[in-house]
């Protein structure tokens, strides 16, 4: 593996390798000195061209816990605001002997375009509605901690499946690890033909949750929606919000995941987000470990 552009194209072995590595990384964050010298002298640039707090901070912490130098760039204040093309900017970073590029962009395919252009490894930190592989890996790690293995487990992904890169990466990684994946949401948010990816669409929250081992609740992203796919937050909440009542349809102790940031009272009720089966903060902890694993496996790698 040279780049991490998506879950698509990763073998089951490559996924397990990253998860196993992440498991060993978890303990580092609990030490008195939260840093190992592995990537000492390596430079990692986090190019975040779309607003992000959690993912950017998570990548930065991951790089620093491995002793790499992490540099964060945003669109505003960078030469991109002087109309430099992204590809030129990446070539310039490469000419400064940067060792790895982490890219977040609102357009699908940007990390792939850069990976074709530069010789250093590129990690996709979320591109448009395409993929968000490190989020999917941390979700898989979180579920593996709950169940030991995803084999045969039923995972329901609820929300705007059509516009969610998390949904896409999640369903690819959960399927690769042997889980039965259900996707659920209003018909406008379920892409036609999704069955081809080996998942089953549901148009009722109750049906999707019945007997599920885990629920991934997606964020309703007003900022990414151009037209109105749903009449309003309140109506969405009425039909699709994960509440104590709807969660009761899933298996007892079903794991609740959410990629954050959460819209309380819209896609998830506070009583669910903050209570026991919620693994939302474990996901954040696991995110750092997964990103450490990715940076460790890719930085300076010859393969």
């Amino acid at each position: 593996m040279r780049h991490l552009l998506g879950i698509e194209g990763l073998s089951r072995e490559e996924i397990l390798r990253l998860l196993d590595t992440a498991e060993a990384m978890l303990e580092i964050s609990q030490r008195e000195v939260k840093r190992v010298p592995t990537l000492r002298g390596k430079t990692i640039v986090n190019l975040f061209l779309e607003p992000s707090t959690r993912t950017r901070v998570s990548f930065e912490i991951a790089a620093k816990r491995l002793s790499a130098d992490a540099i964060n760039l945003q669109a505003s204040g960078s030469s991109l605001s002087k109309k430099e093309t992204l590809a030129d900017m990446a070539s310039n970073l490469e000419a400064m002997n940067v060792d790895l590029l982490v890219v977040r962009d609102r357009t699908a395919g940007v990390p792939k375009m850069l990976a074709d252009r530069v010789r250093i490894p590129v990690v996709n930190a979320g591109d448009g509605a395409h993929e968000h592989p490190t989020q999917a890996l941390l979700d898989a790690l979180t579920l593996r901690q709950s169940f030991g293995s995803l084999e045969g487990r039923v995972v329901a992904i609820v929300g705007d499946i059509a516009h969610s890169r998390v949904a896409r990466s999640d369903l690819l990684v959960f399927s690769a690890l042997g889980a039965e994946v259900r996707v659920a949401g209003p018909p406008t948010m379920i892409p036609p033909g999704i069955e081809a990816l080996g998942v089953k669409p549901y148009f009722s929250l109750e049906d999707a949750l019945a007997g599920a081992d885990a629920v991934v609740v997606l964020r309703i992203q007003q900022e990414r929606l151009e037209g109105a796919l749903f009449p309003g937050e309140r109506e969405y909440a009425q039909n699709w919000s994960l509440t104590r009542r709807t969660l009761a349809l899933a298996k007892p102790e079903a794991a609740v995941l959410h990629p954050g940031p959460i819209n309380r009272g819209v896609e998830i009720a506070s009583e669910v987000a903050d209570a026991e089966p919620s693994r939302i903060l474990d996901q954040v902890t696991n995110g750092v470990a997964v990103r450490m694993a990715v940076l460790y496996q890719l930085t300076g790698s010859e393969q």
Binding site: R17, D20, T21, E23, A24, M25, E27, I28, V36, P37, T38, L39, K42, L66, Y296, Q297, T299, G300, S301, E302, Q303
Partner: peptide, 23 residues
């Protein structure tokens, strides 16, 4: 203790062994 992440040859070698947990 797993010392993989402290080795002086792990990055240069191009190979990336999976560290075992340290306890």
């Amino acid at each position: 203790l797993d010392v993989t992440l402290y080795r002086d040859d792990v990055i240069a070698s191009g190979r990336r062994p999976i560290p075992s947990p340290t306890r």
